[in-house]
């Protein structure tokens, strides 16, 4: 795979290049900040860009860089690597895109297998979220009923699964051969059954719904 790296910590940057090469990937660009990476990638093609969040342009250059890369190269995958796994950043990342995107802790991609698996899933269009973060996010207050996903109808679960794959309402409608209106109704029912109330934005609820689903898939309670 052709990968590009932007990371301001020299030691971590070097380690990342070595591991990527050991995994058989081609590092086509390697920069200490977001702006030089965007400049390099205007002429060099890459499959996935690996971005530190806390790097120049400060304070969270990785996010600004990702927005610019996503606008210029919609097919390029984006993997955020950070020392912290915060839901605040996950929400901002999922505002940039809900496909071909990932957010993982720096030390958790420390093997050829995990790194390559993460990159492949992103290049294939998936969302890859640090499991610990996904788990923390969907942990509802103890008063909430467990097994919320089980309360969904079969069709609602199909819709949620496609949401988790990063599809839009229109994309879901064409996959399931139903109208966009029908999908909207299913989505509203899903939000309702999962207890995602209207005081948060539609996007935020969509992300929460997806995370609830991902967590149920992982067999967590």
């Amino acid at each position: 795979m052709r990968v590009a790296v932007a990371e301001d910590g020299a030691l971590f940057r070097q380690g990342l290049v070595l591991l990527l090469e050991a995994a058989g990937h081609e590092v086509v660009a390697c920069e200490a900040g977001g702006d030089p990476l965007v400049a390099r990638l205007s002429t060099i093609p890459a499959d996935v860009a690996l971005l530190d969040i806390r790097m120049p342009p400060e304070p969270d250059g990785g996010l600004v860089t990702a927005e610019r890369l996503r606008a210029a190269h919609p097919d390029m995958g984006l993997l955020f690597l950070s020392h912290y796994a915060e839901s605040h950043y996950l929400m901002r990342i999922l505002e940039i895109g809900t496909d071909r995107i990932g957010y993982r802790l720096k030390e958790k991609v420390g093997s050829v297998e995990v790194l390559s698996d993460t990159l492949t899933r992103i290049a294939d269009g998936e969302i890859v979220i640090e499991p610990e973060l996904a788990k923390r996010l969907v942990e509802r207050p103890r008063s909430e009923k467990r097994d919320l996903v089980a309360s969904l109808s079969e069709r609602e679960r199909d819709v949620l699964k496609l949401m988790a794959e990063g599809r839009s309402n229109n994309g879901i409608a064409s996959t399931l051969f139903v109208s966009a209106k029908a999908v909207e109704k299913h989505v509203a029912n899903i939000f309702d059954k999962l207890g995602l109330h209207a005081d948060t934005s539609a996007h935020h609820r969509r992300v929460q719904a997806v995370l609830t689903y991902l967590r149920s898939q992982r067999g967590d309670t």
Binding site: G15, L18, H83, V109, L115
Partner: peptide, 20 residues
């Protein structure tokens, strides 16, 4: 963040290289 955390995260990657 800039010191020990970065060193240790970089070591985790070097360890992955060693394993491979």
């Amino acid at each position: 963040h800039d010191g020990p955390a970065q060193r240790l995260s970089a070591l985790a990657l070097r360890l992955g290289v060693l394993r491979a």
